[in-house]
Design a protein around this nucleic acid. Structure first.
Length: 707
DNA sequence: GTTCTAGAAC
DNA sequence: GTTCTAGAAC
């Protein structure tokens, strides 16, 4: 069909049909390692309507690094298919670029995008990438990056580029991403040099685009105003109620035309947290009590807010919680500039409501996963995969009363459409018996948890508000707070080991269906052998309580259960010790388990098993990551919850013998050591019955049992 | 949770 | 060349 040659050295000929497609683009990324080249490509490709292909020398060879000719060949082939290509390799000197420039022709224009970021930023990113490996990559990386940058030759138009974009900081990069994202299949970009390099440079499109009101942008997904498509109550409620009392709904007109009406120009820079009422929807928390708590907590935080604002949001003006809160806030004379209620969709506050909120709160579930309904589903939906990834990078679970601040990657639609820079997940108390951790109408506990939830939320917001400018400005003097670095997170990986994650849960729920594995079952617990024992004897005591998935979920009401599990575990150690008196046992929980459903490990301290293969296996049983059952019981008894040591460092710590504490370079050497080490266990372990030996040897305190 | 494997470490 | 690990994939 098409006749052009794919040999990189010969320029492709245009044929008539192709003119209709618009010109293809070869965009050479130019930048040091970790300057963000791949991220740039991914960010553009995620949202662009133009067919792009990223040609990455590091992965072109079936995921392995390949050669320049391979890249050239692949680029030519993609161009032939009508696609535009990103050349994702350093391209720091002219010689490395020249062959790619030759791909250009009548129907193919060649661009350079220069990610000329500070060397120290690239180096720190590399260090970050490899830090957990515990080697000295950081130092080496610094030398490599510095040397590469010393020899760099910035591209010039005279090399044959029709357009060069220089990015000197992350704001420039964002702008360039926006610019390239907006180039549709038939569009072209202005020719020339853009960015600070050229004094005659025109202002970059990207920044202007952002500063325009959203309906004016020409991004691919902006559609003509069609109010009939709107789903939320906003389209029915055209004007929010304003009361003449001290506390009012912010007076915003929402017309048929979804053009936002700014409250005032100044407001766009005010750090603003929009939050839904926590726990009052699906979790069925009493509205009166909830509104009291909201107002009380808002009042507490009022004088810490500075110029920041809090906005309680609900979908409908008939919202009971909004009117309750409004009335109570008015009663307390709370400054309505700093705190007000707002009717609208929390995912479209700016585009549909004209309200700028740089931070929004999500009424999350304990797993921090999308789904369910209501606000959680809506926010994850609107924010895209980037939020899910960014969230999972920070935490896997959240327990009631807590909040988790997640900087929103700039790739998220919520970021570029709504100006949301952070999402704060909050989990409140649950009064709905059909949801996990139901408090069974215990409002004493419930109110405490809800108070904690709002405190955590507002604290999280303040930490964000204090460290960043809420919205990009035209001046280019954007303060790049610490959170900016987080935009590096690239995000489409999703984890899908759900089936094995559920295995323990399934057994606990239906032990009768797992006869072969179950050693013992009562109404409260199930005992099984660990499927991959990490010692001669290793079994698990599972709770059968629904919604009790891990140690973080454990509260005082589970104290009796914890004691039962411990007693059952001890009973099994008796049996094993009768068979082999040389064994010593330890009973405890992993701080963050991999598998769902709270389970107590009962594990012999030989730690002699072919299944113990990795550092994290070893460290999960021999560092503070392993929480001794006796300690957990004591902590839950006295503080209502157990200490969770959720620190990846613990699992990647150096390998040390659990008896003599000597360090070993790798698992095989460690194993060979422990097979001979006869040292006594550390004194710490010999206290409080953390160790369970055959009999009470001298020096080891008697077992702790729980009546 | 395990398995697989590239590439680092030796 | 062989051993070992970390990370991806499942």
């Amino acid at each position: 069909m098409e006749e052009m040659e794919i040999d990189g050295a010969s320029k492709p000929k245009a044929c008539e049909q192709e003119k209709e497609k618009g010109k293809r683009i070869v965009a050479l990324l130019v930048g040091a390692p970790a300057s963000g080249k791949s991220t740039f490509c991914e960010n553009v490709m995620r949202a662009s309507s133009r067919p792009w292909v990223r040609i990455c020398q590091d992965t072109i060879n079936n995921g392995k690094s390949g050669s320049k000719p391979q890249c050239l060949k692949s680029a030519a082939a993609s161009l032939k298919e009508g696609k535009s290509v990103f050349i994702d390799r350093c391209n720091l000197v002219k010689d490395q670029r020249v062959d790619f420039v030759k791909l250009g022709g009548a129907e193919v224009e060649v661009h350079a995008v220069v990610l000329d970021l500070p060397a120290k930023l690239c180096i720190s990113r590399i260090a970050k990438r490899t830090r957990h490996e515990g080697n000295l990559q950081g130092g080496k990386a610094a030398a490599v990056v510095n040397r590469m940058l010393q020899n760099k030759e910035l591209p010039k138009l005279s090399e044959g580029f029709s357009r060069i974009t220089f990015c000197r900081n992350e704001t420039d990069v964002e702008a360039a991403v926006n610019t390239y994202t907006a180039v549709g299949p038939l569009d072209t970009l202005p020719r020339g040099c853009f960015g600070q390099k050229d004094p005659n440079a025109k202002t970059q499109l990207g920044i202007m685009k952002f500063l325009k009101r959203p309906h004016e942008t020409d991004t691919q997904d902006s559609v003509p105003s069609q109010p009939t498509e709107e789903k939320g109550p906003l389209c029915k409620t055209h004007e929010t109620v304003s009361s003449s009392s001290g506390m009012a709904n912010q007076k915003i007109k929402v017309s048929e035309d979804p053009v936002p009406v700014s409250i005032s120009q100044d407001d766009s820079d005010v750090p603003t947290l929009a939050f839904p009422s926590i726990s009052t929807a699906d979790f069925q928390f009493n509205l009166e009590k909830a509104s009291d708590i909201i107002v009380q907590k808002v009042e507490e935080f009022m004088d810490k807010l500075g110029n920041a604002r809090l906005v309680l949001v609900d979908l409908t003006e008939r919202s009971k919680i909004l009117s309750l809160v409004r009335a109570k806030a008015a009663e307390k004379n709370i400054d309505s500039k700093k705190f007000f209620t707002f009717v609208g969709d929390i995912c479209q506050l700016y585009t549909k409501g004209g309200l700028r909120c740089n931070v929004i709160a999500n009424a999350a579930n304990w797993r921090l996963k999308p789904g369910g309904g209501g606000v959680n589903a809506a926010i994850f939906n609107a924010a895209g995969a980037a939020l899910e990834t960014a969230t999972m990078d920070r935490a896997k679970t959240l327990h009631p009363g807590n909040a988790l601040v997640v900087p929103l990657p700039s790739t998220s639609p919520l970021y570029h459409k709504e100006g949301v820079t952070h999402v704060i997940h909050v989990l409140g108390p649950n009064m709905n018996p059909n949801r996990p951790n139901c408090l069974d109408n215990d409002y004493i506990k419930g109110c405490k948890v809800l108070e904690d939830a709002y405190s955590s939320l507002f604290k999280g917001f303040l930490s964000v508000a204090n460290t960043q400018v809420s919205f990009p400005r035209s001046s280019g003097s954007i303060s790049s707070g610490p959170s900016k670095l987080e935009n590096e997170i690239s995000g489409t990986k999703t984890k899908s080991w759900a089936p094995c994650l559920q295995a323990l849960y399934n057994i606990a729920m239906q032990p009768e269906k797992h006869n072969k594995q179950v050693l013992e079952a009562t109404d409260d617990i199930v005992v099984i052998n660990d499927m991959y024992p990490k010692a001669k004897r290793h079994l698990l005591v599972l709770t059968r309580t629904k919604g009790l998935d891990c140690l973080a979920d454990v509260r005082k009401e589970h104290l009796h259960l914890l004691k039962t599990m411990h007693e059952v575990g001890l009973r099994w150690t008796d049996k094993f010790l009768g068979e082999d008196a040389s064994l010593v046992f330890r009973l405890g929980y992993h701080s963050i388990p991999s598998m769902r459903q709270l389970h107590l490990h009962v594990i012999s301290q030989d730690l002699d098993s072919k299944h113990l293969k990795h550092k994290k296996h070893w460290n999960s049983f021999t560092t503070a990551f392993f929480r001794d059952s006796v300690d957990v019981i004591e902590e839950v008894d006295s503080h209502g919850k157990a200490t969770i040591l959720d620190d990846n460092k613990l699992l990647s710590m150096e390998l040390r013998c659990h008896r003599c504490r000597s360090a070993h370079p790798n698992i095989p050497r460690l194993k060979s050591h422990i097979s001979n080490c006869q040292d006594p266990f550390p004194a710490e372990l010999q206290k409080k019955g953390r160790l369970v030996p055959a009999q009470t040897n001298s020096g080891i305190e008697p077992l702790t049992t729980f009546p």
